[in-house]
């Protein structure tokens, strides 16, 4: 009973939905504001990401003709559920969920679910734009997952365990640095930011894979993206930032680290054009592969 409650609290309250959604909106607002200021613009008001979701919630849901209603509506729900569950596993300070052996594997799987949902959303939409976006998303995930997975697996290799707590407690060393760089390499593509905003290139394929989505289902996809941003930044902080014995200090450090990471990828996004799919793929398999190889080598050499 106690364990069930702790899971429920973790998914619904902290670090789950209740805190992650506002945090995600805050981070999205920060990115948009920073982009705007870098481009010499005013930028959106603080509550804009929240307003966006609320506006979508009040709008009509249009389901394209010939699309299975069940899967069309289920995809955004699954996407939100998966990222929230993934976030609930991340051992942020105060997370009530007990650490499980092998939760890293679960986490990595859950993190792939939103991507899968997006790909499926594009394919079921019966829109050529959505289908091209889905294809791009799928191929891109093959590219960026190389450095992304290697960064986490290298840490697990060092820790000798596939348990999040163990990853967190690895003594700080060179592998941390190398793996962090490898992780950061994958981050812009995972967040669909420039120069890897290929699956959501509105000037090429009008929109991303949820082109046919509208109203509350689209709001759920947006919410899922917001939580994913929190998940990625906090995962980076938890795994690669050395922890202090004080949970509150840790929390502050993690949040600041998350914002800093976002600032970095935003800066990259504002100084670059969008690459082509083949170029992005080559980049990740050459430079991402190189970084992965070095990281893995470092775990062995240690």
């Amino acid at each position: 009973m106690n364990a069930v409650w702790s899971y429920l609290v973790a998914i619904a309250v902290w670090p789950g939905l209740l805190f992650a959604a506002p945090l995600g909106w805050l981070e999205l607002w920060f990115m948009r504001k920073l982009v705007a200021r870098l481009q010499g613009r005013q930028g959106p008001p603080f509550f804009q990401p929240f307003f966006d979701v609320m506006k979508l919630l009040g709008k009509e849901t249009v389901i394209p003709r010939g699309v299975s209603r069940g899967i069309f509506l289920a995809l955004p729900l699954v996407s939100v559920a998966a990222v929230t569950a993934a976030l609930a596993i991340v051992p942020l300070p105060g997370n009530p969920v007990p650490s499980l052996p092998g939760d890293v594997v679960l986490l990595l799987y859950l993190m792939e679910v939103p991507v899968l949902c997006e790909v499926l959303a594009g394919y079921v939409s019966r829109s050529i734009y959505g289908q091209v976006a889905a294809m791009r998303e799928a191929i891109l995930s093959l590219a960026y997952n190389l450095p992304f997975l290697v960064a986490i697996i290298a840490m697990a290799q060092v820790a000798g365990s596939f348990q999040m707590r163990a990853l967190q407690e690895v003594p700080y060393g060179l592998v941390h640095l190398l793996a962090a760089v490898t992780f950061l390499l994958a981050l812009p593509a995972r967040m669909k930011l420039n120069p890897f905003s290929i699956a959501n290139a509105e000037h090429e394929i009008i929109a991303d894979s949820h082109i046919e989505y509208s109203g509350p289902p689209l709001a759920l996809f947006k919410l899922s993206h917001a939580i994913e941003v929190v998940l990625l930044t906090e995962l980076f902080a938890v795994v690669f930032i050395p922890a202090t014995p004080w949970p509150l200090v840790n929390l502050v450090v993690y949040l600041v680290a998350g914002i800093l990471v976002l600032g970095g990828v935003t800066l990259l996004a504002t100084t670059t054009a969008r690459l082509r799919l083949t170029q992005a793929f080559r980049f990740y398999w050459v430079w991402g592969g190189l970084a992965s190889a070095i990281t893995m080598a470092a775990t062995l050499v240690r």
Partner: peptide
């Protein structure tokens, strides 16, 4: 050139009227 420009923008007030 772009990095210099956008960092300069950050220090200047917004151009939005």
């Amino acid at each position: 050139a772009m990095l210099k420009t956008i960092l300069g923008n950050l220090l200047r007030p917004s151009r939005t009227r």
